[in-house]
Simulated assay, not measured.
Amino acid sequence: MGIKSFQGSRRQQQNAVEETPLKVSDYMTTDLITFRPDQSVEEVVESLIKNRISGGPVVNEKNELVGIISEGDCLKQLSESRYYNMPMEKDNVEKRMIRNVETIDGNMNVFDAANKFLQSRRRRFPIVENGKLIGQISQKDILIAAMKLKGQNWK
C-alpha cells in the first residue's frame, strides 16, 4: 500500500483552472449598437440616450470598423454648433468620429485586457476579426469576468 501524493491532487486543481474561460472573446458583447459614417450626430445622441450607452463603433456597409464615436465627440459638436451658430443637422458621424481606433484581440487574456484598459484610459475596445467588427469589450465586461472567476480561482 502506497501513500497518496499531494502532488496528484494539485495537478487536478490546476487543470480545473486552465479550463476556465479567460479570453476576452468569452466575455465580449456581440450584440452591438453601431453607427454609420453618414448618420447624423443628432441620431447618434438620440441612440446614446435611448440605449444608455456612452459611445459605439462606426462601421461601413461591409461591417468593417472605420471609427468610434462617443458622448464626448457629440458634446464637442453640440458646443461648436452653438458657438458658431451652425445647425446640427449638417454634421455627420464621419466628421466627428475618431478614425484611429485601438482594438483588442479576442484571444487576449482578460487580465491582460484589464491592464490595457488601465494603460489606455479607454472605456471600451472593439474586437475585429478578418477586418470585420465581431464584438466589443468594456471595463464592465472585464469586472464581470473577474467576479465569475473569483469563486473558482481566488480564495
Rank of each mutant, 00 (worst) to 15 (best):
L75S: 07
R122P: 01
E61K: 12
I98F: 07
V45A: 15
Q77F: 03
R96A: 15
R82T: 06
S70W: 08
K4Y: 04
G8C: 00
I3Y: 06
N107R: 11
L133F: 02
V128P: 06
P126A: 12
S70V: 10
S54P: 06
N107A: 09
L75V: 08
L133P: 06
R122E: 14
N115Y: 11
G8N: 08
E102F: 04
E129T: 03
L118W: 04
R123I: 04
S25R: 15
M97E: 10
R123T: 07
K76S: 12
P37L: 00
V128D: 12
S47K: 14
E18S: 09
E102I: 01
Q77W: 13
K90M: 14
Y27M: 02
S40K: 14
A113N: 10
V17I: 11
G2N: 03
E94V: 02
L65F: 02
V66E: 01
F111T: 06
G106R: 11
S70C: 13
L22T: 11
M28N: 12
E42I: 13
Y84Q: 13
Q39R: 11
S25N: 09
V45S: 10
V41S: 06
N130T: 00
N63F: 05
P37V: 02
V44W: 05
T29P: 00
S40N: 13
